[in-house]
Amino acid sequence: MTELHLALLAGAPRHGYDIKHEHDAWFPDSRPLAFGQVYATLARLQRDGLAQVVETRTDGGPERTVYALTEEGERRLRAWLAEPAAAAGSGADEIVRKTIAALHTGIDVRGFVSRQRASHLRRMRELQRNPPGAGAAEQLVREHVIAHLDADLRWLELATELLPSSGQQQPLRTATERNNP
C-alpha cells in the first residue's frame, strides 16, 4: 500500500482526507481506506523521505497537513510500476492496484500491462511444463492457480482494450508543477 499512497500523491499535493477520498474513488468496489491507515502511511512516507509536508491548511475547519511527493518518492513509484506483480493468486490485488495507479498517474501503463502479461504467461508456461502430482488434490491446487492466472490475463486484455492510446494519456507532472498547483 505504500506505493499506492505515492501514486495517490502523484497528481497533486493532498492531505490525508483527500487521499482517502481519492483512493475510494479509484477503487469504488473495494473496502474504503481507513483514515488511521492513511495517516500512519503518510507519517512513514515522510520519515523515509518519500513525501514531504508542503503546507498546513485550516480552511475554516480542522488543521490539515498537505503532503507532496518528493523526487525520491517519484523514483520509488516509477520503480514499483516498472515491475510486474507476482504472477500468483496473491498478486491479483496488486495487479489491479498497479494498473489503476499507472492509469491515474500516466506512468507507462501500456508498458506495465505488457510486462505483466508476459510475466503471467511465463508462469503459466512453467506450470504447464511441470505437471502436478497424480493425486486429485495436487491437480485441483494446480488448476486453481492456472484458472486465476487466466482470469488475470483476461482482465489485463480488457485493460488493453480500454486503455487510452499513448497520445491521450496525461504525463505525470514534474515535482515542481506538483508542489505549486
Binding site: 508456461r125 504447464q128 492466472l149 487466466d150
Partner: peptide, 21 residues
C-alpha cells in the same frame, strides 16, 4: 486462449492489424 499462448516460446500480439507487443 491464454493456455495456448503459454505453450509458445514467444508471443506476438496483434491489435487492429499491427503488432502491439
Amino acid at each position: 486462449d491464454n493456455a495456448v499462448a503459454a505453450r509458445a516460446d514467444r508471443e506476438v500480439r496483434l491489435r487492429a492489424g499491427s503488432v502491439v507487443h
